[in-house]
């Protein structure tokens, strides 16, 4: 197991935290769960990854940076439990979690 933590500057005009949350995915082989929470982080974004596969810190950094830049996020905390998902699956789950934020659970 490896725990990775990332901090991203976030957009300057990020909306204030609204206490929303979304949880998508299930932890399993080749899969992961992503929880996004809207919290006041002074505009920053905080990502915590617990992964069963060690040694991929650069890959995680790239996928997460791409996600943050595409959506220009701020004041969100992303928490990930990973069972060895590929970068493409991670990117899809991140987008899915963001799409579900603020929607009733389904």
């Amino acid at each position: 197991m490896e725990r990775l933590e990332f901090r991203f500057a976030g957009r300057a005009d990020a909306p204030a935290a609204s206490d929303g949350e979304a949880l998508v995915g299930v932890v399993g082989s080749g899969n992961l769960e992503v929880m996004i929470e809207q919290v006041d982080l002074g505009g920053e974004c905080l990502v915590t990854v617990d992964t069963s596969i060690n040694g991929f810190v650069e890959t995680w950094e790239s996928v997460l940076r791409d996600f943050m830049e595409r959506h220009r996020l701020g004041n969100v905390r992303v928490s990930i439990n990973d069972g060895g998902a590929t970068p493409a699956v991670v990117a899809l789950r991140l987008d899915q979690a963001l799409a579900n934020l603020g929607k009733p659970p389904r």
Binding site: M1, L23, V27, D50, S52
Partner: peptide
């Protein structure tokens, strides 16, 4: 045991 957890 080196295994990932789930939030729930």
């Amino acid at each position: 045991l080196g295994m990932p957890v789930a939030f729930d």
